[in-house]
Nucleic acid binder design. Structure first.
Lengths: 138, 138
DNA sequence: AAAATCAATGCAATGGAAGTGCAATTACTG
DNA sequence: CAGTAATTGCACTTCCATTGCATTGATTTT
């Protein structure tokens, strides 16, 4: 079990107060968050800083970007089983039409998608929309 | 074989010169187009008109919206086999990282996606990225 | 056919999100 | 401790989506 400081250092990311806070925020949220979500959580910090922090995390494969079809890019921590640095990894995300939350279903692998002759598949983005477990249970 | 006029009327859309032109443009393009694409094709027309025309087509299930991950929404004509009015229809689109074009692969059905207990799947958006047939053939 | 009604179009403006340049600050290195 | 490099904050810019309102055009009613 390594600390957040150790994790950042192992990824060659300079440890700053801001980065620790944002990382902590991401671990607490179990869902994918937008930049605005982070912005609302840290009203003191500048939006650009948050933007660039997340971009840094993304470059270093600490978070991955999610396009769930809402038009707003979301970010989520890469967990064990999330090999998003590998181009061919299949990202499966679930977007709830009710609560508008998006979760990563990293443990749910999806089958290989066949494409017609001549097409070369490099990456797959799969977003399932519907009602999530929290909303369907009510 | 029905004319465009008849098609629009059957969908309760008033026939105007603009709408006929835009529909014709969409049939000629075999790929999904952005609003800007349409704008460039009709420089005389106002952007708002084009926007609202496409939105009207979308409401009446003449075109469907595609989110291919470029951040810009694209539109494509619904063809036979494209039952996008049906919530459970699987939209499979291919986005070429080389020429930046997006095509509908309506004839390529994808397998049922399993989601964890408690989750209810209503809709699936699947975008495959890679190199399209035109670009890979070069 | 003219008047009245309703939809479609064009113009102007707004809003939201992504991204950039630069100066100031903060953290590392020798 | 001085110098260097990275980080942060502020001010802008850009791009696309969207809306309000006035005007034009088409359809219906009398």
């Amino acid at each position: 079990m390594q600390t957040i400081e150790e994790l950042l250092e192992s990824k060659n990311i300079r440890v700053t107060a801001m980065r620790l806070l944002i990382y902590k925020f991401l671990t607490e949220k179990q869902i994918a968050v937008t930049l605005s979500d982070i912005e609302n959580a840290f009203e003191k910090a500048d939006r650009t800083t948050l933007y660039r922090t997340v971009k840094t995390f993304e470059e270093k494969d600490i978070v991955h970007q999610i396009d769930d079809g809402t038009g707003i890019t979301k970010y989520a921590l890469c967990e064990k089983g999330c090999n998003c640095e590998i181009e061919t990894d299949l990202h499966l995300h679930f977007h709830c039409n009710n609560c508008n939350e998006t979760v990563c279903l990293t443990e749910h692998k999806i089958p290989q998608i066949k494409v017609p002759d001549g097409f070369v598949s490099e990456n797959v983005n799969l977003v399932v929309k519907g009602i999530c477990d929290k909303c369907s249970g009510q």
